[in-house]
Design a protein around this nucleic acid. Sequence first.
DNA 1: TTGATTTGGTACCGATCGGTAACATATAGG
DNA 2: CCTATATGTTACCGATCGGTACCAAATCAA
Lengths: 204, 204
Amino acid sequence: MTPRFSPQPAQADLTPVPPPPPRERILAAASDLFYRQGIRAVGVDAIAEAAGTNKMTLYRHFESKDSLVAEYLRRLSGKSQVFWSEIEREFPGLYRKQLEAWLEAAGRDANDPQGRGCALANAAVELAEKDHPARRVIEEHKRAQRDRLAKLCADAGLKQPEMLADELFLLLEGARVCSQSIGTDSPCCNFVRMGQAIVASHEK
Amino acid sequence: MTPRFSPQPAQADLTPVPPPPPRERILAAASDLFYRQGIRAVGVDAIAEAAGTNKMTLYRHFESKDSLVAEYLRRLSGKSQVFWSEIEREFPGLYRKQLEAWLEAAGRDANDPQGRGCALANAAVELAEKDHPARRVIEEHKRAQRDRLAKLCADAGLKQPEMLADELFLLLEGARVCSQSIGTDSPCCNFVRMGQAIVASHEK
DNA sequence: TTGATTTGGTACCGATCGGTAACATATAGG
DNA sequence: CCTATATGTTACCGATCGGTACCAAATCAA
């Protein structure tokens, strides 16, 4: 099947974009498979094949499946930090607006019909071993998320900002896991409204 | 090591309690292992051994590992129905008391240091396959929990009982998953207080 | 006591798991 | 052009996965 239109610009034939290096392809494939099917359900062979490479190359870039999992989660955690910066940049100084934007983005996330909740939280459920290298990443990420939210609630001048942050944090964690257990027509459909109500109950 | 005291009453030597039948032992062993280590992390061999039997007997009572998983979750769901009845029986007609009792029991659950969250929700995370026999059990259970909570909120005469139930439901789901990701010193430590505050915000 | 049913035990099946050895090929830098 | 270095290929390792065949031992009902 030769595509009628190349996805590249006109000069693509002269300077075709080089494919991403194997490490990136492996991480991209692993991210997709781990998230959609679960970490334990995906073998390294499947990842290598989906990445268009082989197991040997995978193990040249990652010392084990566990460390690949940890790196997969580390990347996701990084993306979430980027998200916070974007919110800050979009509404500089407008903390109530930032909180509203967070609520709506979180609501979109929790209600994505293709979504399977939070990859970090899912990993914590799947990887029960207390000494798994991924657990440090997960705990640090979740702690940072909560603290960031608490700072925002405080900046927004709301009552009991720490408690409010905990409420919103747990509400989101719950919504993302609920989307996997109940699925459609579940409580998480009203996440944004609930979040707004909880915020309102902390108004001065 | 002969124990100095038998765990059985005095007539134990004459009428020793018969060990539970294999099916029950298998379910008990599976429940413990599935919950503590995760469903995918536990093989049928390990379950059979922990149950003091063998794989062959396991497969005489359960047609597959998947159906054993489903039965494991079905039992847990049943126990939770028993729990609701107990609350009703303890505070008949006192709906606010019932709600308070639910909050405290949920808080105990979410903060159990040995706990690993909700087994049903965890299973939903681990078993991504949409057609897994456990998924029906999980969805029905979670829906029933939410509806029961909504009925209680309505009976208690609180404002917007459906929304309140959703808030409390997600708060608990979040707390139980949070206990696995963050662990100690996490938002779920204040679950009861948060729940009470949310209930208060729905006071007439 | 007899006869049917339920267990236990062991060995096995094909498939897959995470991980590695060895060697051929491609690619890039000097 | 030559030489490192990174990648692809294939075959393999021991272990474990879910699941089964087969037979002996125990149990239980009649």
